[in-house]
Design a protein around this nucleic acid. Structure first.
Lengths: 243, 243, 243, 243
DNA sequence: GATGAATGAGTCTTCATTCAT
DNA sequence: CATGAATGAAGACTCATTCAT
């Protein structure tokens, strides 16, 4: 359950470094390292907006891997471009800046999660308990299935400009409010115990958010299994203290 | 429950920057900004090793604020030094490199948590339930009381060299194993339900780790209150599904 | 009488730039800005060699405006091409390089001035005074009528390659010698005072050359009026000090 | 009287280029080339503000030579720094940006000229004619003595930001108004003919400004000789047409 | 002809780090 | 101890130019 730097432990990136200059440089993973890393498999290719071009979508996927493994600030435009076999300058043919690559990733990520948990075909129209189950499961499944992208969405927010950051925070507020509403409804209609809605909602979100630190598609749990498990836990959390 | 960039929202850091050049730069918070930010209050000064000098400890506290607010890579040695009223070169009188400042913070942080949750006077020698309660509460209290430092410990691991990273991972493994043991004991002795130890332990840790993203000392909950709350939740998680 | 950056003062070019990245960039005027600027009206379209195609001539006119407003080095091939509604690559269909666009402008400009001041129908065959009058007026009129092009001819010489620069210098030498001859003749035949021919010639040329810095077609003087005025001044300069 | 690229004609900068990559690059003069060029001798070292440090003043002198020879945009920060034997990064220890180096040069230059022509010990309190003589001579002497700096002041204005440009324009307006006043006074008191004050003032300024294109300290005229000569011409210009 | 995509070679600027004082 | 000055090594981004379509 360790927090790990995502690429394969034991593989030392500096072993492939760009020469002596790397010596003093922070060890980092190159696009080469990342391309084949099983820990960085996720389903991001299906995420990107279809109106973007092929190269743009591949650049986004490369950037997601780089940002997830090394962080936004430790990722160079060269890293991103090399992940697609292009020169650094090519990035600027498709995106106006490195920050806008990050913004596109984070914005789309946040919009997709929100849409996913609000999807009527998923949420259904059942009881408060069923509804909460569905929401938590959907949220968890999304984060697990797209865990590499989700990691960037959760951990690289400080690479955004102030303006873009504010926009993302707004989406997060809406998502959080949606969760809080689901909990509050169950409390109001007596399905759940008289829990502290704010604190309980926070805890539920924490569970799913934190999985971006450790989840792997090739691990023990499929996204759906983990979703079920966390949905169970969520229900247990809104069950008041046993008497 | 939003994730926030830690310093006060709405305060535009570049307004105090080093001149026009800052305009184009990624918005960042300077030591000045950070010194007075209520969100960055934590109890880090009591953390540092007593054998360190006064200036070293103040540099560590400054670095913690900078790393928490802007991230390791976006923090300059000037940022850290200015937080103590020194020049960048002075940092090197007290630490051999910026990375070693981070390492000192993260290492001490991890050791302190581990020591804290293992502290016999805290854990006691009660039942499996009492023991788990105490451990979760202690872990949570530590993360809340030192949430700024804890944020660095959780989120800036990729600023470490490979060697230092490996050392930290080792400590984390021991901490996680300690938790897992407490859960496993309760399951073994029948105090808890037959839960999936691995998954449940992970969930419990997630709750406390994730609080570094949003906790503030001037918020609604004191560290102890949050510790109690999360200890309650932990117990509820090891209670099997009610039937 | 100020030297001005040619486009309308107060118009902030970056407001129309290529996005946020322009902010940090040296303020420049885009082809859009320049197209409608009354200060950049001149008669360049009639200048270009008729054997050039329509698109080539329009590219030259666009380039003249860009070079005059921003300077050769601060003008991109994109700027030039956009002034004609084409992509940067299209420039290379019509010219082999950006430098050759500049060279074509400057060479044609210099040849045209020389031809103009030597035009027998203008210079006539009158007295030394009439001849000098005519030459100065013609030189001035040309620079005023084509002041945007002339500005490029006078101020962007250092954008040329060494070879092209040398060719242009040669034409300038001939032009200057032609002026010097007209002054010398009047001195020799007693029409003018015993002035220092070299210094006086330089002064006369300075007057007409410097107008490229401030002249506008929509200003107080028409090219012909200014030509008359400077011709008067020239005669006054070759009149020795009155006693 | 040719306009020349300032460094020694015949010396081809690319002969010392940085290798094959220079082939396609615009030929430029390096700091090495410029250091010993007799055409680039001027008196700039005495110009810089005394509160600046030694290194800052030497950087300004180096920058002046580079900007004069190659233009602001074709000058790299490396060029400037190498002229003082420093690395490119050292420039930023002393100036916050390349543009601010230019601004310092141009601002000081403009302030110095204005102060010089307004210096009571130079202008005296004589007749309108004496006064105009003194002003024109002082203006000319300044431009000749500091012709390399003056060239930058006159020809590199478009390297300034919009804000700095506006400040400089304001100083120029004051200088021009001062000249205009001197002419207008002589016209008003009957010392001069009823000349067109605006046009005549412009012509007088043109003479002195244009000398930055061709003047050399090792040429035929000393600054004072040229000042006398242009003062004579100026008086001849304000003498009405002979009857 | 025209252009979208691509890139080699730079350019300004930053920054961790060193060192003489 | 502290620092001002200096720098090697990057890094984001630009741009003239090429080329397949």
């Amino acid at each position: 359950m360790a927090i790990r730097r995502m690429p394969v432990a034991g593989m030392r990136p500096e072993s492939k470094g760009r020469g002596a200059r790397m010596a003093r440089r922070q060890a980092r993973f190159t696009a080469q390292d990342l391309a084949d890393d099983p820990r960085l498999r996720d389903h991001s290719p299906e995420l990107w907006r279809p109106e973007l071009g092929e190269v743009q979508r591949r650049l986004l996927s490369s950037a997601v891997r780089c940002f997830a493994a090394n962080g936004f600030h430790a990722t160079t435009t060269r890293d991103i471009a090399e992940g697609v076999g292009l020169s650094p300058a090519a990035l600027y043919v498709h995106f106006p800046s490195k920050e806008l690559v990050l913004y596109e990733i984070i914005r789309v990520g946040h919009e997709r999660v929100l849409a996913h948990v609000q999807d009527p075909s998923i949420v259904g129209s059942g009881s408060s308990a069923d509804r909460l189950r569905a929401i938590v499961a959907a949220y968890t499944v999304w984060h697990a299935r797209h865990h590499v992208t989700a990691r960037v969405c959760q951990m690289e927010l400080n690479g955004l400009t102030a303006e873009h950051y504010a926009e993302i925070v707004e989406v997060r507020h809406r998502t959080n409010a949606y969760f809080r509403g689901a909990v509050a409804r169950g409390v109001a209609d007596g399905t759940f115990a008289q829990v502290d809605v704010e604190r309980i909602t926070r805890a539920m979100l924490s569970l799913s958010i934190d999985l971006v630190r450790w989840y792997r598609l090739d691990g023990a749990d499929s996204p759906e299994q983990l979703g079920d498990f966390y949905a169970d836990l969520a229900l247990r959390l809104v069950t008041g203290p046993r008497d």
